[in-house]
Amino acid sequence: MPSETPQAEVGPTGCPHRSGPHSAKGSLEKGSPEDKEAKEPLWIRPDAPSRCTWQLGRPASESPHHHTAPAKSPKILPDILKKIGDTPMVRINKIGKKFGLKCELLAKCEFFNAGGSVKDRISLRMIEDAERDGTLKPGDTIIEPTSGNTGIGLALAAAVRGYRCIIVMPEKMSSEKVDVLRALGAEIVRTPTNARFDSPESHVGVAWRLKNEIPNSHILDQYRNASNPLAHYDTTADEILQQCDGKLDMLVASVGTGGTITGIARKLKEKCPGCRIIGVDPEGSILAEPEELNQTEQTTYEVEGIGYDFIPTVLDRTVVDKWFKSNDEEAFTFARMLIAQEGLLCGGSAGSTVAVAVKAAQELQEGQRCVVILPDSVRNYMTKFLSDRWMLQKGFLKEEDLTEKKPWWWHLRVQELGLSAPLTVLPTITCGHTIEILREKGFDQAPVVDEAGVILGMVTLGNMLSSLLAGKVQPSDQVGKVIYKQFKQIRLTDTLGRLSHILEMDHFALVV
């Protein structure tokens, strides 16, 4: 994948999101292997301009796509893939009243899908469409860049269908997702969380590099694949309309690839034109409109599966009536509230959605109805927002919020430890010299600072030695090549209790 991002070429006709291997024109390309080798690009942008032909009021008969309808489940399912879809609609009884809503608040519980998330729908649909058009064949390999849930859905379907599955996901995604993927037989590649989507090191860039190296491999490409919004247009939206008897006044959905909100909203605009569509985008993402909503100094966020630093091709923002931004604290607070007060075992993005819903639905009156999409299960986040310690460490809970008995030293300040200034190293000294210094002084790690004293990161003896043994660096290389740029900081005025929580999850903390 090139470091400079080429513009994806656009073909003359058809839909841009065809499933299957992508040609340089962004659509299915038939021909000899030699032709494909000559024409197939190194990668295709996940934010390529959409060429979708959908228009409100256009006859369904003019759609270029294969459409399906929700099917009634048999008493005995032939395999677990038949437990994807037909998820329950559940009334939220307490939270709406707590925040003064007059309307009825309903939750579409997508964590009841077989793999635990709304992404099971698009995973199965992308595979079925690729099999139907002859792209996927027995023994082929599926590769997908994902925040985890699409990966789980694909790995689940691949396990049943017999495909090899490789999932490329950023490091910030939970260990629970990784464990589930491994249990399903998927191979996992992790990428830096802070890598831009168009960087060769991003999950998108690495996935395309693997595709170019592995024979008979395919990126189904949830960011561009029409099967993504079509899955929701054909099934999720129809289920909502049936469950609500066609009567709903507002739908609120958090947005990642945009397939969920695009597919549902398009069908609702056709069948229930008075329904307002509300999009939820986390602070630090750029999906919301108008652009002024996205202006923030924050560039990272903890909530998973929603928000991006690019506009995915499948996201149709014209069908969203209003956007709201959400933050991590309210997302996790509301997710825990949904679990504790409503018994809905949902993930953090569901918290984002409901946090926005109780604001947006203030305009609705008694007798009206708001539906929220709860995308995934708490299963993926047992060591994250479900953990009091994690919430404390991230600053989303305060010590006084917890009532468990603490040891005698818990409320003492870090400054009472009488710490001395640490050994520091410059980023320009060599790895070999740094190892000598650390061994001589008896230290395992040291902060790396520039000549102005600005902290650049941390270097550890173990990481340097393993990097040297693996051949990633040489003793003569500058130590700046092996620094940890993500590390926890703590102030002298913070409590030892807070430091204790940090050290339970990290090997060190830097006192500043």
Rank of each mutant, 00 (worst) to 15 (best):
P6I: 02
P6L: 12
P6Y: 14
Q7V: 13
A8T: 15
T13W: 02
P16N: 02
S23A: 15
G26I: 02
G26F: 06
L28F: 02
L28V: 14
L28Q: 10
L28C: 08
G31Q: 02
P33L: 08
P33Y: 09
P33S: 09
E34P: 02
E34N: 02
A38C: 15
A38L: 15
K39H: 02
K39P: 15
E40L: 12
L42I: 13
L42H: 08
P46S: 09
P46L: 06
P46D: 06
P46G: 02
P46F: 05
T53I: 13
L56C: 15
L56F: 14
P59I: 11
E62S: 14
S63F: 08
S63V: 06
P64Y: 02
H65K: 07
H67N: 02
P70M: 15
K72M: 02
S73C: 14
P74C: 08
I76V: 02
K82S: 07
I84F: 15
G85R: 10
T87I: 15
P88S: 10
V90G: 02
R91V: 04
N93M: 02
G96F: 02
K98I: 14
K102L: 08
F112C: 02
A114I: 06
K119E: 13
D120A: 11
R121W: 02
I122G: 02
R125H: 10
R125C: 09
E131W: 02
R132Y: 02
R132G: 05
G134F: 05
T135G: 06
T135L: 12
T135C: 02
L136K: 04
L136C: 13
P138Y: 13
G139V: 05
G139A: 02
I142E: 02
I142C: 06
P145S: 02
T150N: 02
I152R: 02
A155V: 02
A155S: 11
A158T: 15
A159W: 02
V160R: 13
G162P: 11
M169W: 07
K172C: 02
M173E: 02
S175L: 07
S175A: 10
E176W: 04
K177F: 02
V180L: 08
G185M: 12
A186M: 02
A186E: 02
A186I: 05
T191V: 02
N194R: 02
A195D: 02
A195T: 09
A195W: 09
R196S: 09
R196Y: 09
R196D: 02
D198V: 02
V204S: 02
G205Q: 15
R209Q: 13
L210V: 07
L210N: 05
N212C: 11
I214C: 05
N216P: 06
L220G: 06
L220K: 07
D221I: 02
Q222I: 02
A226L: 07
N228P: 05
D234V: 02
A237Y: 04
I240P: 05
L241C: 06
L241F: 09
Q242F: 08
Q242V: 09
C244V: 14
C244S: 02
D245L: 04
K247S: 04
M250L: 12
L251V: 12
S254G: 06
V255R: 02
T257G: 02
T257A: 08
T260F: 02
G263E: 06
I264C: 14
A265L: 04
L268S: 06
E270C: 02
K271D: 02
K271Q: 10
P273I: 07
G274R: 11
